[in-house]
């Protein structure tokens, strides 16, 4: 289990059952829910923000939030 800020580009994972309390409702509503898939698409040139594919939605969030989203890596 790792947080999505540690992913390499192209890596995917499935969000774990226990959602961190820091994750805001808005992020859940976009698709950050247990069982959904996350893939890292791109890292911004200055290392922040990070561009993810979350359950079909393409969004960019900052590292400080990505730290809280934990996934199980898909091999």
């Amino acid at each position: 289990m790792i947080s999505i800020d540690r992913l390499r580009i192209g890596q995917k994972g499935v969000i774990v059952e226990e959602l961190d309390a820091h994750i805001p409702v808005k992020l859940m509503e976009i698709g950050c829910l247990p069982g959904n898939e996350v893939e890292l698409i791109q890292i911004a040139p200055l290392n922040d923000p990070l561009y993810f594919l979350v359950d079909g939605s393409r969004i960019a969030i900052r590292r400080e939030m990505a730290k809280y989203v934990k996934i199980d890596l898909k091999s």
Binding site: I30, P49, R58, I59, A60, M65
Partner: peptide, 9 residues
């Protein structure tokens, strides 16, 4: 406000 930007096609 938590920062999030959607990347449309």
């Amino acid at each position: 406000n938590f920062f999030m930007v959607e990347m449309p096609t």
